[in-house]
Design a protein around this nucleic acid. Structure first.
Lengths: 250, 250
DNA sequence: CGTTCTATTGAGGGAAGTCAACAGTGGTGG
DNA sequence: CCACCACTGTTGACTTCCCTCAATAGAACG
């Protein structure tokens, strides 16, 4: 149990360090965090929109979707969180959750109290910056999702989502861009791309028939990365993967 | 000139204070900021995606759109900034601009150096929180835009955008939700909603014919706010207008 | 006073949605 | 251990919402 927690915290620290310069001391503070492990079955809500909670959820294993729902029931997935992601760091700055959270597959999360996180950022200014920057990165992904559903047709949309997830899993050292595990169902992917599950199915078939990418029971295999990038009109700049910015100082 | 600047800074402080508790001292620090006023003609780029700048832009007057563009040229507007908004506070956490900025109408912005803003947040921890929270609010708007283009039809989409802008102008004390000035052309609104300008025109016609809302040369008149909210499936919770959260402390 | 942008309208086409049926699959409980 | 059941994936036929192309009038701007 202890090793599971520390592995998860290491993944989280790794994600932060990819974009922010942290001192050894600060990384140590991150790794010293503790929380409560929660196992969540597939297809169950972790949090509802508007809920007030006093902890953040670090994904240890599985896949978590943030979503908003219309009165009609139509669901739009806003964000996908993979192991090593904190699903809702922005909760530190907001009294209640801006969107619902649902486990798409069997998932385990580590709940870390806001009080602990706040204590940490009071001590280490570099961590404030890293957390804030993490929220900015999430916003940049959101902006690209607006472009995705707003200005790409179904094929490009699905291809783009797969490009993004490929690089994220690769960056998190959980597979490569050529092959990774994405335990989301077709209805889930439809909700993430603003399509219906029927049309998403047809779109995946097109990408498979063109020998670009295929998905079998959660396993995504990219046969032609170049073609995938081309059909998605994918430019990874928005993911801010270019390494840490200059340290935060005057 | 001096009074223009300080009015703009007051508007900005007002926006922050609506969601964050700041001390008098901190507000004073904000109001003491200074920068360079820039006049920008209508339909001109302020910043291109990927540009590196060392200042943030506070909208003094006019309307600024943040957008991303596909290789094909298709443009998606990501964000609209009205007077009192800082267009790109997130630049403090990112080496280069994640999206382009364009003035939709004749606009004047106040450029404030990153160094000055950083100096301010080094001194006042409450301002760090306020800035960070401002980025979180922007992300929440982005999330709702994903829902908008992903899961609403054209009528609801346009209605929703108008609801959001109505409350924002009202909140910023620049008109009321029944009547406000939105100096965006129909092609602009189309780019913000993921529609074509032709279809946006027809959609506006529908809303006008139903006596819900009409737009004449930048002036938006809401004839039936309840109907507008209903057709938009609008729930303002995501705008975080419920006043300041508890002050930031342990 | 032309030029360019903006708003409007029509006709036709196409991408994605809807409804429906069925096969595969995995989990669960008897 | 097997049988059931719910979920997932797949396919077909039909519909519809939105796009495309095109033309024109009006407004803003130099």
């Amino acid at each position: 149990v202890k090793s599971i927690k520390s592995a998860a915290l290491r993944n989280f620290a790794y994600r932060l360090v990819a974009r922010s310069s942290l001192t050894e001391n600060e990384v140590g503070g991150l790794l010293d965090l503790d929380g409560v492990l929660k196992d969540v079955p597939a297809r169950t809500d972790i949090m509802r929109q508007g809920d007030n909670v006093d902890y953040c959820s670090l994904v240890v294993d599985g896949l978590v979707a943030g979503f908003r729902q219309r009165k009609s029931g139509a669901r739009q997935i806003i964000q996908l969180s993979i192991p090593g992601d904190m699903t809702d760091l922005s909760l530190l700055m907001s009294p209640s959750s801006g969107w619902g959270m649902s486990a798409l597959t069997r998932t385990t999360v580590l709940r870390i109290a806001h009080a602990d996180l706040r204590r940490l950022i009071m001590i280490h200014p570099g961590i404030v910056e890293a957390f804030w920057r993490d929220c900015v990165v999430d916003a940049s992904l959101l902006a690209e999702w607006v472009v995705n559903v707003g200005r790409r047709d179904a094929t490009a949309r699905v291809a783009h989502l797969l490009c993004e997830m490929a690089l994220r899993y690769e960056q998190a050292r959980q597979g490569s861009r050529r092959s990774f595990t994405l335990p989301a169902t077709q209805p889930d992917l439809a909700d993430a791309t603003g399509l219906t599950s029927v049309h998403l199915n047809r779109t995946l078939a097109v990408l498979r028939d063109r020998a670009i990418v295929s998905k079998q029971a959660g396993q995504v295999t990219v046969h032609d990365w170049g073609e995938l990038v081309a059909t998605a009109d994918f430019n990874p700049a928005y993911m801010m993967l270019d390494g840490p910015a200059v340290p935060f100082e005057l």
